[in-house]
Amino acid sequence: MLPVIWQGIVTGCLYSLGALGLVMIFKSSKMVNFAHGALAGYGAFSVHALTAGGAGWPWLAAVAAALLGAIAISVLVYGLIAELLQRAATTATIATLGIGLIAQGMILWQYGSNIFRLDLPLPHLSFSILGMALTAYDVAVLSATFLVVVALFLVIERTRLGVAFRAVSTDPFAARVCGLSISRVHLFSWVTSSMLGVIAALLIVPTTFLSSTTVTTFMLQAFAAAVIGGFDSLPGSAIGGILVGVSCNLFSFYVAPELLNTFLLTFMLASLSFFPGGILSQRLGSRV
């Protein structure tokens, strides 16, 4: 059972990274970005195209280019839906579904429905601690997650932009009265979110392979993590990701791997019933 839980924690870190991106956007814009997975997948495809898939760039250069591309796309996306956000979150949400479909279609158009290998540049290493196997990949995931969370924390706690972000997410009206630029904060959260998405995608793809649906499929778990942790809580969603990772692994191992989506559905509904404010929230029912 211990190895199952351990693997769940490692995979859970990836769900946390995915969920953090969703929550960043939700906290500032009060909407769900359904294009998150498809856009992150597009980033992963760009890395593949720039490295093994043809251009032959060094891995780091390709990742940097993909991150820059993701930033540019997120600015564009925000520009498209900024005005919708002022009216109703529902329409903005539908618009992100449309953007997700376009991104998915672009992936299919450019790269076809083939599947590719996209590994991290890591050595074949594995060692065993307390009977649990630990590979170079696991170490990479854990340390990347740790670094990302620390960096995010520092930016939000220590920078002016971070302060503005917190102000907007607590009370957008008061923040505007104080003269904060709402759209700058929105842009900050969209850009950060897109980078988190690409990082999560690059880390998730090596567990299987890259196809037009790999990253979007994986994002369901990220959505579940955000629901369980609370869409307005960054630490909540990070913990939610690990909870989802461990419980999914346990469920697949002991019950039925074919019913994973159903399990996630039940888990989300149960969590909404018992912890409507997210697992870290004391203010019950405050998510209205």
């Binding site: 949400t93 996630l264 998510r287 209205v288």
Partner: peptide, 16 residues
């Protein structure tokens, strides 16, 4: 379960 929550929760759960 999502009757008292904001609509985004319902939307996300419909995905699952």
């Amino acid at each position: 379960p999502s009757r008292t929550l904001s609509g985004v929760y319902l939307s996300v759960v419909t995905l699952a």
